Computed example of a mutant assay.
Amino acid sequence: MEVEAASGSASESRWSKLGTSLPVTNVQALVASAGELTVDKIQRYIQPDIDAHAVLPELSDDVPVIDISKLLSPESAEAETAKLRFACAEWGFFQVVNHGISDEVIMGIKQGIQKFFGLPLEVKNAYAQQPGDLQGYGQAFVVSDDQKLDWADMLALFTQPPQARDMSYWPSQPHTFRNCIERYSSEVMKFTHSLAIFIAKTLDVDPELVADKYVSQFLRMSYYPPCTSTPEKVLGFSPHSDGSFLTILLEVNSVQGLQIRRHGAWVPVKPHSNALLVNVGDLLEIMTNGKYKSIEHRVTINAHKERLSISAFHIPNYDGIISPILGTIGEKMLYKTVKVEEYARLYFSNKLEGKRALDYAKLPKI
């Protein structure tokens, strides 16, 4: 069944106008014409400080894995809840197995993304970002003509709630793609609802306190072409934390590249088969008064293979606020109450730069 077009409501349509990205050369097209590349073109992608911190692949197996079935079982719920609390507080990133999203839905979105990025450039450009809009096909966080660029192309869509959608950005090719996006988006929304309730339990707070923190969803489908010349000097995504409440990531193919920041070093993530990857966003860090940390992460590039992924960013209502929840009497408040619109505007209007956006929400140290 074809997804019907929906016009965005007044408040939800404002999400896509919070920032914009300057148009830049399509990276996939650059790779396809590698023989014509000049040093100047490549130079803008070279990251001078890419080796500033060590990479520790031996820690990959330490990334927490949370089993939803254990959270639901009376026999194992307490232990698995403690494990989830540890993952949010100490890692800010974890993998989730037995998440409940069917193999059919997962395979549908994976195949759709692969087919879309395999289309000719002129077909994909029919869904190109428009000035002043975050949605569409292109790149993100390009705010100046002299900043370093990421080695990636993307398709970004507001998917939830349905009235937030601008269907002019939803590709009609491949012909099943829209329905695959719709099904995946809905299933991830249900999963996020369940996960948020479990996270509320780890904080010993009423689930109603988080119920309005993930009502909107923004999907980013990313394509990272191989870089045969200098893969060790380019990044698919620069180091950053997410300006979301929770982010759910699905690896589309088996090519690794995601690295997370831990104790001043980078830890590569090896996704478990059939797992979803979850990370704490800035807004959850603010809400927990810093107990749960948004995780800085980046994407490295393979010399010979493309990498694809899809991120689902879950965010509060446009007109909402985020306030720290203090757990104990006398606990010092580390973050101020922030307006969601104000924080999102700050986040989307600047280039990615670690956790710099979160500094806006921090109260001055006394």
Rank of each mutant, 00 (worst) to 15 (best):
P74W: 00
P74N: 01
E75A: 11
A77F: 08
A77N: 12
E78N: 13
A79H: 10
A79T: 11
A79P: 00
E80F: 04
E80H: 04
E80W: 04
T81W: 01
L84M: 05
R85Q: 13
R85W: 04
F86W: 07
F86N: 08
F86I: 06
A87V: 02
A87Q: 01
A87N: 03
A87W: 00
A87L: 00
A87I: 03
C88Y: 05
A89W: 08
E90D: 13
E90W: 00
E90P: 02
W91I: 03
W91L: 00
G92D: 00
G92Q: 01
F93H: 11
F94D: 05
Q95A: 04
Q95W: 06
Q95N: 03
V97E: 02
V97T: 08
V97N: 02
N98F: 07
H99V: 02
H99P: 02
G100K: 02
S102A: 07
D103P: 05
D103L: 14
D103M: 12
V105N: 08
V105Q: 08
V105Y: 07
I106E: 14
I106T: 15
M107P: 04
I109T: 13
Q111N: 15
Q111H: 15
G112P: 10
G112R: 10
G112Q: 10
G112V: 12
I113P: 05
Q114D: 08
K115I: 08
K115G: 09
F116M: 04
G118E: 12
L119A: 10
L119G: 11
L119Q: 08
L121Q: 12
E122D: 14
E122P: 01
V123N: 06
V123Y: 06
V123R: 12
K124D: 01
K124P: 01
N125R: 15
A126H: 11
A126G: 15
A128W: 05
A128E: 13
Q129A: 09
Q129W: 03
P131C: 07
G132Q: 08
G132E: 10
G132I: 11
D133I: 12
L134G: 00
Q135G: 11
Y137P: 01
G138F: 09
A140M: 14
A140E: 10
V143C: 12
V143H: 11
D145L: 13
D145G: 11
Q147E: 13
Q147N: 05
K148C: 07
L149R: 11
D150T: 04
D150M: 12
D150W: 00
W151T: 05
W151E: 03
A152K: 13
A152F: 03
D153H: 02
D153F: 01
M154H: 06
M154F: 03
M154N: 11
M154G: 06
A156D: 04
A156E: 09
L157V: 07
L157C: 04
T159H: 03
Q160M: 08
P162W: 13
Q163G: 06
A164F: 12
A164Q: 14
R165F: 10
R165H: 10
M167C: 15
M167G: 10
M167H: 15
M167W: 13
W170N: 07
P171K: 11
P171I: 10
S172W: 02
T176G: 13
T176L: 14
R178K: 15
N179Q: 15
N179H: 14
E182V: 06
E182G: 04
S185P: 07
E187S: 15
M189I: 07
